[in-house]
C-alpha cells in the first residue's frame, strides 16, 4: 500500500513538473517571469501568443492523448496477455495513415480537422485485423502479435505509398502528418474527438475489475461471474476508441502504451484497478517529457515528439526483449 502511495505521489509531482516545463520551455526562449505574466494575459504580445495560443493547447493535447495511449497500452497488454502489446506495434498507426491518405487523395479533404474521421476509421480497422489475425484462445503470443502488426503495416504501407506517389500534394501533407506531433494541431480537432476520449477512458476504468478476473484465465473468470466475451469485446472497443482518437489528433505515436504499463506495474503489481489509473497519469508525463526534449535538442528547429518517442521507445522495446524470455503475461 505504501508503495502505491509513494508511486502516486511521485507520478503526481512528475506530472506537475512536466506540465510546467511544457508551458515554460520551448524552442523560443522566454524567461520564466515573462511566462507567468503572459499566462495572466499581460506582458509582450508575442509572449502572450506563444504561451496562451501555442504552448497551452499543446500541453492540453499532450495530457489527453498521453492518458489515452497509456490506458490503451495497459488494456492491450492485459487483453492479449502480451507484455509487448502496443498500439503502434499493432499497425494502428498505418491504418490511421491509410485513412488520412485516402481522405486527401480520393475525397479531396484538406484540413486536419476534416481527416480526423478517416484516421479514426483506419485505426479501428487495422486494430481489428491485427487482433483477429493474432488472437487465439486465451491470449496472443507476443511474436505472433508483432508479426500480425508487421503484416498489416506492410500491406497498408504499400497502399499509402502508392497513393502518395500518385499525388504530390498528398505526399507533402502526409510526410508531416506521419511523424506524430502535438504541436500546431488544431484545437477544433480536440473538441471533435473529446467524446471518444471520454467514452474510452470511462469504459476502461469501469472494466478494471472484470479484467482482473480475466487475468486468472477464462474458466476462473467465468466462475467469478465476469462475462468473459463481453469484457473482451468492451475492452477492445475501449482500446480502439482511445488509440483511434489519439492517433487522429496527433498522428502516429508509438511505444508510449508499451513502456508506461511496464513502469507502472513495478509500483502497483498486477491489479488493474491500480494499473489503469496509474498508466493514465504516467503516460502524459512521458509524452510531454519527450515533447519538451524534442523542443530543446534541435534548437532553433524542433524535433517532433513522435520521433523522440520512437527512438527512446525502440531502445526500451529491445531492452525488454533482451532482458527476459518473453512469455505469455
Amino acid at each position: 500500500m505504501t508503495r502505491r502511495l509513494t508511486g502516486l505521489l511521485l507520478i503526481g509531482v512528475l506530472l506537475l513538473v512536466t506540465v510546467l516545463l511544457s508551458i515554460a520551455v520551448g524552442s523560443r526562449t522566454i524567461p520564466f517571469g515573462d511566462v507567468v505574466s503572459a499566462l495572466g494575459g499581460t506582458g509582450s504580445p508575442d509572449d502572450v501568443v506563444t504561451v496562451r495560443e501555442m504552448r497551452i493547447p499543446r500541453t492540453v493535447l499532450g495530457l489527453i492523448a498521453g492518458a489515452a495511449l497509456g490506458l490503451a497500452g495497459a488494456l492491450m497488454q492485459t487483453l492479449t496477455r502480451n507484455p509487448l502489446a502496443d498500439p503502434g506495434i499493432f499497425g494502428v498507426n498505418h491504418g490511421a495513415a491509410a485513412g488520412v491518405v485516402l481522405a486527401i487523395t480520393v475525397f479531396g479533404v484538406t484540413s486536419p480537422a476534416g481527416y480526423v474521421w478517416f484516421a479514426f476509421a483506419g485505426a479501428v480497422l487495422a486494430t481489428l485485423i491485427a487482433y483477429g489475425a493474432s488472437a487465439g484462445r486465451g491470449g496472443t503470443n507476443p511474436a505472433r502479435l508483432a508479426l500480425a502488426g508487421i503484416a498489416v503495416q506492410f500491406a497498408l504501407a504499400g497502399v499509402n505509398q502508392a497513393l502518395q506517389l500518385a499525388d504530390r500534394g498528398a505526399l507533402d501533407q502526409m510526410r508531416y502528418w506521419i511523424v506524430g506531433s502535438i504541436a500546431n494541431r488544431e484545437t477544433e480537432t480536440l473538441w471533435r474527438l473529446a467524446p471518444f476520449f471520454a467514452a474510452g477512458i470511462l469504459l476502461s476504468l469501469v472494466l478494471a475489475r472484470n479484467l482482473n478476473a480475466l487475468a486468472l484465465g477464462d474458466d476462473t473468470a467465468r466462475a467469478l461471474g465476469a462475462g468473459v466475451g463481453a469484457t473482451r469485446v468492451l475492452a477492445l472497443a475501449a482500446v480502439t476508441l482511445l488509440c483511434g482518437a489519439a492517433t487522429a489528433a496527433c498522428g502516429p505515436l508509438a511505444f508510449i502504451g508499451l513502456m508506461v504499463p511496464h513502469i507502472v506495474r513495478a509500483f502497483t503489481g498486477p491489479d488493474q484497478r491500480w494499473v489503469l489509473p496509474f498508466s493514465m497519469l504516467l503516460a502524459p508525463v512521458v509524452l510531454l517529457g519527450a515533447d519538451v526534449i524534442g523542443r530543446v535538442v534541435a534548437r532553433p528547429a524542433e524535433l517532433q515528439v513522435g520521433i523522440v518517442m520512437d527512438v527512446i521507445g525502440g531502445i526500451v522495446f529491445i531492452a525488454i526483449v533482451r532482458a527476459r524470455r518473453v512469455v505469455h503475461l
Binding site: 509487448l84 503502434g88 506495434i89 507476443p142 511474436a143 508483432a146 508479426l147 502488426g149 508487421i150 510526410r175 508531416y176 506521419i178 511523424v179 508509438a254 511505444f255 524535433l303 517532433q304 513522435g306 520521433i307 520512437d310 527512438v311 521507445g313 525502440g314 531502445i315 522495446f317 529491445i318 526483449v321 533482451r322 518473453v326
Partner: peptide, 24 residues
C-alpha cells in the same frame, strides 16, 4: 528464436521514424 524477429521489429520502428524525419 523469436528474439531475432522482435529485436528486428524494434529496430525497424526506430529506423522508420528516422526515415519519416528525413522526409520532413
Amino acid at each position: 528464436g523469436y528474439r531475432l524477429v522482435l529485436v528486428g521489429v524494434g529496430i525497424s520502428t526506430v529506423l522508420m521514424a528516422v526515415n519519416g524525419y528525413l522526409l520532413t
